[in-house]
Protein backbone atom coordinates (compact mmCIF):
# COMPACT_ATOMS: atom_id res chain seq x y z
CA UNK A 1 0.00 0.00 0.00
CA UNK A 2 1.44 3.35 0.97
CA UNK A 3 5.18 3.48 1.46
CA UNK A 4 5.06 5.65 4.57
CA UNK A 5 8.77 5.12 5.17
CA UNK A 6 9.77 6.61 1.84
CA UNK A 7 7.23 9.38 2.28
CA UNK A 8 8.86 10.33 5.58
CA UNK A 9 12.28 10.34 3.95
CA UNK A 10 10.97 12.58 1.17
CA UNK A 11 9.47 14.94 3.75
CA UNK A 12 12.69 15.15 5.77
CA UNK A 13 14.87 15.57 2.67
CA UNK A 14 12.57 18.34 1.38
CA UNK A 15 12.74 20.19 4.70
CA UNK A 16 16.54 19.92 4.85
CA UNK A 17 16.98 20.93 1.20
CA UNK A 18 14.56 23.85 1.15
CA UNK A 19 15.44 25.20 4.59
CA UNK A 20 19.13 24.80 3.81
CA UNK A 21 18.92 26.89 0.66
CA UNK A 22 16.71 29.49 2.30
CA UNK A 23 18.86 29.75 5.44
CA UNK A 24 22.07 30.15 3.47
CA UNK A 25 20.61 32.70 1.08
CA UNK A 26 19.05 34.64 3.96
CA UNK A 27 22.33 34.69 5.89
CA UNK A 28 24.05 35.82 2.72
CA UNK A 29 21.57 38.67 2.36
CA UNK A 30 21.93 39.53 6.03
CA UNK A 31 25.71 39.81 5.91
CA UNK A 32 26.51 40.73 2.34
CA UNK A 33 23.23 41.62 0.66
CA UNK A 34 22.18 44.98 -0.73
CA UNK A 35 21.62 47.67 1.92
CA UNK A 36 24.26 46.27 4.23
CA UNK A 37 27.41 48.09 5.20
CA UNK A 38 29.36 45.12 6.55
CA UNK A 39 32.99 44.84 5.68
CA UNK A 40 35.72 42.34 6.46
CA UNK A 41 34.86 39.07 8.17
CA UNK A 42 31.08 39.50 8.18
CA UNK A 43 31.03 40.41 4.51
CA UNK A 44 33.21 37.40 3.70
CA UNK A 45 30.87 35.22 5.77
CA UNK A 46 27.93 36.45 3.72
CA UNK A 47 29.72 35.72 0.47
CA UNK A 48 30.55 32.23 1.76
CA UNK A 49 26.85 31.65 2.46
CA UNK A 50 25.96 32.67 -1.09
CA UNK A 51 28.60 30.31 -2.45
CA UNK A 52 27.35 27.40 -0.32
CA UNK A 53 23.80 28.17 -1.44
CA UNK A 54 25.02 28.13 -5.04
CA UNK A 55 26.59 24.72 -4.43
CA UNK A 56 23.28 23.36 -3.10
CA UNK A 57 21.52 24.69 -6.22
CA UNK A 58 24.23 23.07 -8.37
CA UNK A 59 23.53 19.80 -6.54
CA UNK A 60 19.89 20.26 -7.55
CA UNK A 61 20.92 20.62 -11.21
CA UNK A 62 23.09 17.52 -10.80
CA UNK A 63 20.06 15.59 -9.52
CA UNK A 64 17.83 16.81 -12.36
CA UNK A 65 20.19 15.82 -15.18
CA UNK A 66 20.29 12.01 -15.33
CA UNK A 67 23.43 11.94 -17.46
CA UNK A 68 25.43 12.80 -14.33
CA UNK A 69 24.35 9.78 -12.33
CA UNK A 70 23.86 6.67 -14.47
Amino acid sequence: MIAWGSFLIVLIASIIGACGVVTLFSLGLRFAGPATTNTGVRHALGITCFVLCGLLVAFGVYLIIPAFHP
Binding site: V10, S14, G60
Partner: peptide, 20 residues
Protein backbone atom coordinates in the same frame (compact mmCIF):
# COMPACT_ATOMS: atom_id res chain seq x y z
CA UNK B 1 8.48 33.54 -3.44
CA UNK B 2 12.02 32.37 -2.83
CA UNK B 3 10.96 30.16 0.06
CA UNK B 4 8.05 28.68 -1.90
CA UNK B 5 10.19 27.89 -4.94
CA UNK B 6 12.91 26.37 -2.78
CA UNK B 7 10.24 24.20 -1.14
CA UNK B 8 8.78 23.20 -4.52
CA UNK B 9 12.20 22.30 -5.94
CA UNK B 10 13.24 20.36 -2.85
CA UNK B 11 9.99 18.43 -2.70
CA UNK B 12 10.03 17.53 -6.41
CA UNK B 13 13.67 16.48 -6.39
CA UNK B 14 13.29 14.50 -3.18
CA UNK B 15 10.17 12.75 -4.45
CA UNK B 16 11.65 11.80 -7.82
CA UNK B 17 14.91 10.54 -6.32
CA UNK B 18 13.67 8.90 -3.14
CA UNK B 19 10.74 7.12 -4.68
CA UNK B 20 7.51 8.70 -3.57
Amino acid sequence: GFAAEAATTAAILASTHLGF
